[in-house]
Amino acid sequence: MGVPLSYYIGLAVVLFTIGAIGVATRRNMLVVLMSLEIMMNSVNLVFISFARFRGDVGAHGIVFVVIAVAAAEVAVGLAIAIQIFKHNRSVNVDEADKLKY
């Protein structure tokens, strides 16, 4: 193997962190959704790298499962974003602040 396993895992962890920071700091609901996608896909990268490293095809199946679930998640997320937009006229997460103590 040309590139060692740790590089792939390192890249995946960096992507996951970028996604997590995006979810935590970005204010646009659509960007938050995108960040969630980055997190899910970085996990796919981990699965695929380990599958290659172990010579095991099982994890390829897991990746397809994750892709399907991520698609379903985005569908629900966009529907909720539309609801938010209808009420607030924007998809800014900060403007949805009716619930607090």
Binding site: M39, V76, G77, I80, V93, A96
Partner: peptide
């Protein structure tokens, strides 16, 4: 408020699932 609650639950729930999934991936590795 329902939409807002749904959004909050969705974002944090998605975050949590990603964490669990990454844990799964590492355990698999």
């Amino acid at each position: 408020v329902g939409a807002e609650a749904g959004m909050k639950y969705f974002v944090l729930g998605g975050l949590a699932s990603s964490f669990l999934l990454l844990g799964t991936a590492f355990l698999y590795g």
